[in-house]
Amino acid sequence: MPLHFELVTPEKLVRSEEVYQVVVPGAEGDFGVLANHAPFMATVRDGNLTVYAEEKSQPETIAIRGGFAEVNDKGLTVLAEHAE
């Protein structure tokens, strides 16, 4: 089952897609989120999000600044002030 991943900035909804895994640069250390992750909230330090679309696919990185991540039963939502 894929993980629903959303990346939102104040200016627009950057991503909304089904992925395999996302590695988030949390303020207290990186953490990977797979499908069915337990509910979780964390602030995010400036750095790169790593998105794996499929289990074995090439990871894609998205630089984010000023972020915050929330995992709930609907998936992972990353709120960032900037994303490239």
Binding site: G26, A27, E28, P39, A42, N72
Partner: peptide
């Protein structure tokens, strides 16, 4: 209301 307890970091 969320069914599970949410973990916070920090």
């Amino acid at each position: 209301k969320s069914s599970a307890a949410v973990e916070y970091e920090p």
